[in-house]
Amino acid sequence: MESQNQFLKALTSPETQEVAFKKLVVDYKERLYWHIRKILIDHNDADDALQNTFVKVYENIRKFKGNSSIYTWMYKIATNEALNLLDKKSKQLGISNEEWIEKKTDLLESDVYFDSNAMLIKLQKAIGSLPEKQRIVFNMRHYEEMKYEEMSEILGTSVGGLKASYHHAMTKIKNIINE
């Protein structure tokens, strides 16, 4: 926590903030990218959301009170940015977020930035068919192996609710794969 306070001080001090912010980008860009990419599916959309995330982090760093880890706080911003972009894209087409994701997963076979492996595509289609919240919870728990307590802080949902969402998601995915 002490080191985080020092790092926060470096991020807000005019003399050191450039170096500190660069370190933040270097350390977290990949982890945040993959979290966003799982939500948005498409690389270009993920790229937009990732850049917006870091710009927001920089603009709001003074508002961060240090109650949680900076990583959790950034994760929260990244999730919001990804969901906002998803809302924007789906509204442009006049469809729901779930329909947008379904559309994207249907295009995975022709996506140059996706391995055209039948099993992987089937799994992604199964994940893509989940309701938005279950999909995010599944990705965070299953792939990123995040603790429920941390997920609760990021998503603003109780640990019990998250466990239930994950259980429902897992059951649905298993059913789809076994079909």
Partner: peptide
């Protein structure tokens, strides 16, 4: 099977995005 579950990125993407982000700030 695949660390990134099938999702790939363009070559050198993380180097480029780092520069893009730092230029935006």
């Amino acid at each position: 099977t695949s660390e990134k579950n099938g999702f790939n990125i363009p070559n050198g993407y993380f180097q480029r995005v780092e520069k893009d982000i730092l230029n935006k700030v």
